[in-house]
Structure formats: C-alpha cells, structure tokens
Nucleic acid binder design. Structure first.
Lengths: 203, 203
DNA sequence: GTCTATACGGCGATAGAC
DNA sequence: GTCTATCGCCGTATAGAC
C-alpha cells in the first residue's frame, strides 16, 4: 500500500490517455464479479481493452491492481457522499443512501456488495504480507465515519454505535441478498432499516 | 453436488478410519481461514494428516471437497440447533445462539463467519457450472428456517421477515467484525440484537 | 510507450508401484 | 487401500523487439 493511488505510477512520461484509471476501475469491476483469486490479469486487460503485456507498464504486480481497485472504491464512496451532502437533512441523506443500495439490488443479488465482498476476501490473507486488508478497512471506516456524522447531526450521543449498526445492517442485507440470490431481501430489509431510522429521529 | 454427503464415497470397501470425515472437516476449517481459491489440496491433506495423493481416493476433485465442507457446515448447524432445542423457551434459544456467536468473536475478527464467507466466495462463480452456491444457500436457508420457527413459536405473524432480519444482523456483524478486525463489534452488536429480541417478545 | 513471446513456478490431477 | 512420482495446464511476470 502506502500512497494508494500514486504507488507505482510511471512519472517523467506523458500519461496521455487514462489507461491506468481504466485498468483500475476495470479491476474493481472484475474483482467484484469474479473475486480476486479467480481473476486473471488477462481478464482485467480484456475488460479495460488493454493488451495483456501492457498492464505491467502500469502495475508491476497483481496486488498493485488490487490496491488500485480499493482506491477506486474509495473514490466512488467519496463521490456518493459528496452527492448526499447536498441534501439538507441528515435523515434524508441516510435514507437516500439506503435508496441507492436498493437500486443496486440486482447486482447485489448476483455478486454481493462490491466493496464488502472484496474486503472479506482480502481478510483471508496471511497477516503482514501486504496491508491490503488494512487499506480496505480504511475505506469501510470512512463509510462508517460519514454515517456517524449524520447521526451526530441528528443529535444522537450514541452516534458511533448507531453508525456501526447501520453499516452492519447493510452488509448483512447484502450477504443474504447475494447468498439467497434474491433482490427482494434488499428491498424489504432496506425498508426496515429506513423505518428504524424514523424511530430514532426526534419528533 | 447431488447427494451431498454421499457423493463420491467409495463403497464396497471397508471405510475403516474416518479419513473422509477428517478431510471434510479439515477442508471446512482451512477454507474458512484461507478461502477456497487460495487453499491447495496439499494444505487440506496436511491439516487432515493424510498424504496428498491419498486425498484423491476420497475426493476426485477439489470441488468435491468444497461440497464436503458445505456438508460439514450443515452438520455443525444441525448439532447447534439440536442443542438449542433443548432449551424450553424460544426466546432463550435465540439469545443462546447470539451468545455462541459472541463467544466465537475472536475467530470472526480474524476470518469472518465460517459459513457466510464461504457462501460469499462461492457466489463469485459462474452460474450453472456447479451447484455449489445453491448447496450453500440451502444451508443458509436451513438456519433462517430454524430462526423463523422460534419467532413463530413466539407468536409473531411476521416470523419470516423477522428471521431474515435476524440472520442478516448476524452476517453484517460478522463482516464488520472481520473487516475492522475488532471482536468488540460482535460483542456490542450482539447485545443490541439481543435487546431487540426483548422488544419483540410479548410481555 | 506498446506489445509479443516466453520463462518460470505452482497446483490439480493421474499413473501406477506397493 | 495407501502413497510417490510426475504430467500438463495455466497464470504471473519478464525480456526484449518495435
């Protein structure tokens, strides 16, 4: 890990087209669908429409592509929360977040949570070899922190624990939606989660 | 898949020692710790203390070991629920189930839910090649069904949805406990889940 | 900077001696 | 039934032409 997005970037040369970014987001997508271990570099190269041998110009190892994929998820999260921050009420922001998850229910039914399943897979690695699992944990913490901020703005003193509960609920929904291959689980459990939010908000 | 436990069993010969079962439960354990894709047959052979070449006498392919591991989880679930069924009150059964999860918090922090992470990994496979993901789903459904039965005995008309919520909560707890590498998440969220049960029970 | 050809290692699976 | 030796494939990574 280290600097995430910047590690391994060839400098002193014209970056020209965003091949590196194309590879990173292709990696994130293919890792989501196939898992890291079942995905070959040639799968990613094909998805990004880049010749196999050329991948190594941008990423020296497969693990660097995993790192880039984590960075890609981090960026996606930032974009989403920036959007949500436009909404005036914290309660509406959280509900809109749930709404977005429900919209992605078909994808979740087939492949699970794009980020949760990646983090789970990385956690099977032996400790200390690489810090990729910790890099993934940082993104998860960023989500929790954003949710916590909303609960704080709602005046909840127990915001930290509520935030963990909230994200926990989502990850659980995603797992069951995926394992049961049933998008309706996301819909019904998402509604329950939204209802729970209403019981917390001060009238 | 097909017959789960029986598939590929050599018949017409003396089974003698339970090597097959040793291999199956070793497979379940190693798959949990390393994931299916990162686990080699030699890892499993070593864990079961069986020579590598001999594995193929009991299991023709690696996938058959995955199938056996799923069967092993199924059996573990049966043992646990049989234990819990000894308790007279359904509410106590559910709380005892949560208590068991909390006891396993250290393992969950390091490797996640033994069954949930396996099912999640199998769901990354392409459809139709093997039915292993569906076999895993059946075990998850069995857990949900048992939980649902407890809610039904509690007189809840919405037992099916409550059961899904309950298992969802656990899977989510397990994911965050694992990703954050923090056993305390399981403790605190487990307590929340138990408290939630109390709010449901008729006074 | 781009791409092809290939080296290298590892793992699933098999053959066949005992 | 048990175990060793080994085959063959595939995937990561490299060398080096263009």
């Amino acid at each position: 890990m280290t600097d995430s997005k910047l590690a391994g970037k060839p400098d002193g040369a014209k970056p020209k087209s965003g091949k590196r970014e194309r590879l990173a987001s292709a990696a994130a997508q293919v890792f989501h669908q196939q898992g890291v271990e079942r995905t070959t570099l040639s799968d990613i190269a094909a998805a990004a429409d880049v010749p196999l041998g050329n991948v190594y110009y941008y990423f020296k190892t497969k693990d660097q592509l995993v790192e880039a994929a984590i960075g890609s998820h981090q960026e996606s999260l930032r974009v989403v929360t920036d959007q949500l921050d436009q909404l005036p009420a914290p309660l509406d922001r959280l509900k809109a977040l749930i709404g977005g998850w429900i919209e992605q229910r078909e994808t979740a039914a087939r492949y699970g949570c794009p980020f949760g399943t990646l983090a789970t897979e990385l956690d099977k690695r032996e400790d200390g070899l690489d810090g990729l699992d910790r890099a993934a944990a940082a993104v998860m913490r960023a989500l929790i922190a954003w949710v916590e901020e909303q609960f704080t703005q709602l005046g909840r003193a127990d915001a930290p624990e509520l935030a963990v509960s909230f994200v926990t609920a989502y990850q659980g929904m995603a797992v069951l939606t995926n394992v049961l291959r049933d998008p309706e689980v996301m819909t019904s459990q998402g509604r329950r989660l939204a209802d729970w939010l209403d019981t917390l908000a001060p009238a």
